[in-house]
């Protein structure tokens, strides 16, 4: 029997890596009349469902996906976040 687990992978530029998007967002704040906001970094959030026997196995898959595909270790940092297991089970049906 397998369970579906829902994860989010948050990918952000590593500290020190130039982030022109973050800078552009920051540059636009003045036009909104907003003050006191700094160090804007723009990243990417990927949400996905993994079907696996248990949460550890599911997390292992997500870690691999996150480091091999969703992020470039040279420039990105990532964080895996569990956003809940669904109750539905996916098993072989007779």
């Amino acid at each position: 029997m397998s369970v579906e687990f829902r994860f989010a992978v948050n990918v952000t530029p590593k500290p020190g890596i130039l982030d022109p998007q973050g800078r552009a967002v920051e540059g636009s704040l003045g036009h909104l009349g907003i003050e006191g906001v700094s160090a804007v970094r723009v990243g990417r959030r990927v949400e996905l469902t993994v079907t696996a026997p248990d949460e550890d196995a599911a997390r292992e898959t997500v870690e691999r996906l996150a480091s091999d595909l969703l992020s470039n270790p040279l420039i990105d940092a990532y964080e895996v976040e569990a956003i809940g297991a669904t109750s539905s089970t996916v098993g072989a049906r007779g």
């Binding site: 890596i17 130039l18 022109p20 998007q21 552009a24 470039n72 040279l74 420039i75």
Partner: peptide
């Protein structure tokens, strides 16, 4: 570079 056949990475242009 993504295939790790060359060093480095290509980021978004500095001027966006």
């Amino acid at each position: 570079t993504e295939a790790h056949l060359l060093p480095g990475a290509l980021l978004r242009n500095r001027g966006l």
